[in-house]
Design a protein around this nucleic acid. Structure first.
Length: 319
DNA sequence: ATTTAGACCTGTCAGC
DNA sequence: TGCTGACAGGTCTAAA
């Protein structure tokens, strides 16, 4: 689910709400959610830490903790955070001696009668919960269980982030550096945009949207783009990510912000999951194809490609 | 060296 | 109503 705009939006909300708070207890309800270190060490290390800062890098949410520790969160497809007010009681069903609760249905929570339905729905998929000393509770929910939460020493940040490329909304992401990165790449530009070592934070929604913005066909070979097209694509990447943040992220069904609200960017997408609908620019029907095992959506009229530079369609099967 | 299936997971929706 | 298959915001690994 979350790409850069969704993670950035969450980071801003967390920064405003939990910096300065201290973690009292942590409960893990799905062991594999904790990617590093093992669950017992994770629980022992995180107890009593103060939350000093909240940052974002690519699709990673970074939480700096006291004692030079770094908590990294990658939500993958369906991970989410919910912050419960302190008045809300939680009942994890844990015995005090249990380091891990083996309850795949997640803990049960007692909500005020007037609480939003989305809270109780999401909490059903709680994989990890952080109880703060002020009584509030930060829930990490993740229906598909792909997301990972890891704890590292602060000096291990580079290792934890696995060679991420430049931040697209920072000065380091320039037309020139982008151009250099694309130079040696013979694969489809859509696939290259999804490579986190090329640019950090772009996912399937914003890759499709950026290519539409720049009027570039998703199958174009990356090394075939001319200077003007690279300029447009660079501009498009920045524009669609910035708009996504301004709209509070893109929500389809499951994504909600810290307080259970849906992001509005879905109402502003041009091509993503718009197959069969008319292009807002020219009215041509939006098409969908599979590139690198992912859906690609584009306008066949606006995003035409010079024949010499288009890759043959790859495996038009499955998905 | 690339490229591509498969794995990791659960939910939803369309079609029969 | 129930079953089946396709598909979903992502990334890693093994095999071709």
């Amino acid at each position: 689910m979350p790409e850069l705009p969704e993670v950035e939006y969450t980071a801003r909300q967390l920064r405003a709400s939990i910096v300065g708070a201290t973690i009292a207890e942590t409960y893990v309800f799905w062991e594999r959610t904790i990617g590093h270190p093992g669950v017992p060490d994770f629980l022992a290390e995180i107890a009593g830490r103060r939350i000093e800062a909240v940052r974002r890098r690519g699709k990673f949410l970074l939480i700096d903790l006291s004692g030079d520790l770094l908590l990294t969160v990658h939500r993958r497809m369906s991970g989410n955070f919910l912050l419960l007010p302190s008045a809300w009681r939680i009942d994890t069903g844990l015995r005090e001696s249990d380091p891990v609760a083996w309850n795949t249905k997640g803990p049960t929570y007692q909500f005020p009668e007037d609480s939003a339905a989305s809270y109780s729905l999401e909490s059903r998929y709680c994989r990890t919960s952080f109880v703060l000393t002020d009584g509030r509770c930060l829930l990490y929910t993740d229906p598909r269980k792909f997301g990972r939460i890891e704890l590292w020493s602060k000096h291990q940040e580079q290792e934890a982030l696995r060679g991420l490329g430049p931040e697209p909304l920072d000065d380091q992401f320039t037309r020139e550096s982008f151009s250099q990165t694309l130079a040696g790449r013979r694969t489809a530009i859509k696939q290259v945009l999804l490579d986190q070592t090329v640019v950090a934070g772009i996912g399937n929604i914003y890759a499709d949207e950026a290519l539409f913005y720049a009027a570039i066909h998703p199958l174009r070979r990356a090394d075939s783009l001319n200077a003007l097209e690279i300029e447009h694509l660079h501009e498009g990447v920045v524009a669609v990510l910035t708009l996504g943040i301004e709209h509070g992220g893109t929500s389809f069904s499951a994504y909600h912000d810290l307080w259970g609200q849906a992001g509005d960017n879905y109402n502003h997408v041009s091509v993503y999951q718009q197959e069969g609908k008319p292009c807002a620019r020219c009215g041509t029907t939006i098409e969908r194809m599979v590139i690198a095992q992912r859906s690609a959506h584009f306008c066949p009229h606006c995003q035409q490609s010079p024949l010499h530079a288009t890759l043959p369609a790859i495996s038009p099967t499955k998905k």
